[in-house]
Design a protein around this nucleic acid. Structure first.
Lengths: 192, 192, 192, 192
DNA sequence: TATGAATGAGTATTCATTCAT
DNA sequence: AATGAATGAATACTCATTCAT
């Protein structure tokens, strides 16, 4: 049976299924056939929407990033949050993304995960959006780091790696962040 | 021509060539044939020493780790170094490994670099060895971090990622380390 | 946008675009999609007019042949031309077609050019029309060849092949024709 | 069952089977799988010997040409033959090659044959070897053509095309050759 | 120990063709 | 008349792995 769908919808459907499989099995071990089969769709259809596997991969990463991007935008505009509130919210966003997609980090020999690509992309986003926040924080004296942007990147990528190794307690993460940024204890609130 | 060698020697030879090629081209894009060709050896011989590509990969990683492991051991035993000296030397070890093997991090979607696999292993080693050092540092009041081991891990993996994105200036790395560990400026010395 | 056209016009439009692309890229490397895209038309429309790619190909060839057919007809009826004039005009027609459509002969292993298909058809046409001319020529003593029709075919197809190999000088072609047909030097005039 | 063969033998075996299938079905319609299947051999083996389909094709053509090349060499060295004898022998060689591989010329829309490639290659060979013969013939006054090399090419390629269209009578070919080269009737002997 | 020919399952990609709208 | 999303079979090519010698 032939089921036609709105192109945008179909495209999104493919991206989402690819994401799921990339998480589950890693990028290389997920074949274009796998994706088509799971969607009950002909292989050719995927190539109707994406020129190549590589293009599909970048769409998947971009799609993941965009969601995070939008969320951070909202946080930055939220006037109900002060400096520490915003910082905490942003960090939460990242760590919860990782928490909810543990398979993202499925790196095993012979099969690299999506994690490394997404992590880089995410920390780019973090810096872009958090730039203003950090400058404010520095001016207001909340932060005294010489390279606060870099420190933030390190924290995000470093804690993500910690997470991968099983250190998942947010209170530990909180302490590490506070120490590295020289922030008073308890100012940052991380969700479990 | 058929050249017989001491088995251990041969095995090591294969591991080393695999290491070189994994660095150069990434793990997936290095085929067993590539390795055999470079060694002027028949494909079958590699399978005589290693059950599978996967087994070879893990030997390569283990071999790389062991070298680092030994080096750290030497640093720890070096009585000519004080706390900061040892800490600096250990950090140097990691960052210079990365500096000298930039191809280690040759990660592209669909082709993982050695680094992806080694990173976890390396930070395990760091923690194992640096455990004593850090405990000493804490007792002696050099370090006040609540979770100094985790902080170290974050620094190693986070700075490695920074490095990948082009932030290669050691003086920046030094500042980040000093701030995160609450160490007085200039105590740690990183080689260029 | 949906543009309706007169069926015959549309059909001709498709044939012409196919011709252009077949010349440019060869027949196999021209996909039905390519043709549709260039015409700003949906793929399905081409299948509305032609049952299959094969059918389209034969229409294209037929269309090309018909043009040549008509031209030769005009030459034969042209009372202003004598025997040598007509013969020269016919030969010109073929060689200028090749000269003006060098891509016609775009043959590479695995991708045949239009010429491969057209050549036989063209020489059939040549013989059909030139039959009368040649008989006249023989009767009038202008030509003494035993099989002038075959000789003509050989010249057309052979010189076309010469052309493909880079021998493009019309004065060389002229000499070859004159020698093969036993015609006095300078009687045939070939355009550059 | 696994049957190992001498590499050169295997390579030749593949080339020959490819030749047969290319003749039968045309180049494009013959897949690498087809060739493997007919040989009762794994697909991969063909790629062990030939980098790509394209490489295999050129080996097939080269292999075919080499045989002809050698035969012509023998004729040229044959002191028992005079000018006309050698010329006849060479022409015989070509036309009998065509006669024995009629499927070579299996050109149908959507499927180009090997013929065009081989024809070009053959006429190159003809010119190379016949160069000396023709110069001799010209000096000795046997031939008066202005461009005897080109005329020879035209004859070979043109008569081959005639053959394709069903004109297979060698006596007709003989006359055409004699007329085009200005050779006395009956000097050239073509086998049936 | 060592060779390298042989295997075979797998992979991305293309494209003529169909069909519901 | 026209659209374009969907199909599915085919294709070239790769590579880890095996095995007879």
């Amino acid at each position: 049976m032939r089921i036609s769908k709105d192109p945008e919808e179909r495209k999104q459907e493919i991206i989402e299924m690819a994401m799921v499989l990339f998480e589950e099995k890693g990028i290389q071990k997920t074949s274009m056939s796998d994706i088509a089969k799971k969607l009950n769709v002909a292989k050719g259809l995927i190539y109707y929407y994406f020129r190549s596997k590589e293009e599909l991969i970048s769409y998947v990463i971009e799609s993941f990033s965009m969601v995070v991007d939008e969320e951070i935008g909202k946080i930055m505009k939220n006037e109900g949050l002060d400096f520490y509130g915003k910082l905490g919210a942003i960090l939460n966003l990242f760590f919860s993304a990782i928490r909810e997609h543990p398979s993202l980090m499925n790196i095993t020999p012979g099969n690299s995960g999506m994690f490394e690509y997404i992590k880089t992309r995410l920390s780019e986003i973090a810096i872009t959006h958090a730039g203003v926040l950090i400058e404010e924080g520095k001016k207001a004296g909340f932060i005294e780091n010489k390279y606060p942007g870099y420190m933030l990147k390190i924290l995000i990528s470093g804690i993500a790696d910690l997470y991968m190794e099983g250190v998942t307690d947010p209170s530990i993460h909180r302490v590490l962040i506070e120490e590295a940024l020289g922030i008073p204890e308890g100012k940052i609130v991380l969700k479990a």
